[in-house]
Design a protein around this nucleic acid. Sequence first.
DNA 1: TGTGAATTACCTATCAGTAGATAGGTAAGC
DNA 2: GCTTACCTATCTACTGATAGGTAATTCACA
Lengths: 180, 180
Amino acid sequence: MSKLEEIIETAEAMIRERGYNGFSFREIADAVGVKSASVHYHFPTKGDLGAVVARAYTEKFLSALGDPEAMGITPKKQIERYIEACRYAVIKQRKMCLCGMLGAEVAALPDEVARETKIFFEKNIEWLVKVYARMANVGAAGAHRRAYGAVATVEGAMILARSLKDPDAFEKAVKQIATS
Amino acid sequence: MSKLEEIIETAEAMIRERGYNGFSFREIADAVGVKSASVHYHFPTKGDLGAVVARAYTEKFLSALGDPEAMGITPKKQIERYIEACRYAVIKQRKMCLCGMLGAEVAALPDEVARETKIFFEKNIEWLVKVYARMANVGAAGAHRRAYGAVATVEGAMILARSLKDPDAFEKAVKQIATS
DNA sequence: TGTGAATTACCTATCAGTAGATAGGTAAGC
DNA sequence: GCTTACCTATCTACTGATAGGTAATTCACA
């Protein structure tokens, strides 16, 4: 893996653990094994780095979800897949969702990072709306309501599990998504 | 209002806007009209200040909710009151819930602040469990599931509204809480 | 095919600014 | 005289960022 890729990966991990204001160029450089000036070579400003990390995370997350209109899988299974992606992040990786973290801190972020955070949520909602729209007895308004509710619940469930130091809090919180 | 109270109030506002790592003793001192050493006089360390702010916020929030077992009000109305408290925070005050913010950053917090954050969520859940338990056709497990789900959804809905810069995102996200 | 210019990916050294924290002083009030 | 609530001054550590240097690679073209 190139140093550039290592920097992005390390930055993602640090932001997901401690937030945008909770890491420095020096920490990343030390973790990767270069000097902080070399991180500035790849990313002139901290905002540049944050924006690239957020965009890469969004792409990775969405491609893991797959096509929301795939015919070979039921909408219910796809919602379960969505929850599973977040469960993996908080239980296995023991970290927040990158954009859940950035979303909380959004007022403290450079514009370019806030923009990418917004795009992450827009695309998440778009994906969920398409899935819910495929369900029987769910209209357009209902699909939107459920999509917003699902994203919010999952992000909040991650905060809850980490604050309470109880992985099961995540399970309890997201249970109503699947059964509604 | 005493300088001490002003410091606590200002710190709360700053943490809710930009997070625990997004404010400094100097900024608080400037906003209040004292020197940073005077803030250290009241709160020796940043962790001391954070813990006091979190504890005060928890007390204020819970007393605004009132008695969860009050007989003069229906459980449904009480859930609406809970949502209304958070709506006020994010729409009127245009800020995150203090403990939603701290909860996201929990891995970057001093122990004493993380402890108060945990207590906030425990007490929120306790309040909601008592309310849901009063509803017809809701068992003990169902009350817990709904309580965790409600806290998570509300916290996530605040992140969503701020990230999307769309107050209505909060309304869409929390709608399913009231109607389940 | 050989060669010089460009580009890439790092480095050392340093900057001004800010972080949290401390020592020690002062003026007011009980 | 002790306590409270501030102050000035200062500390060390760290922040994001910049200037300028170097070795290795790539590439255009005679």
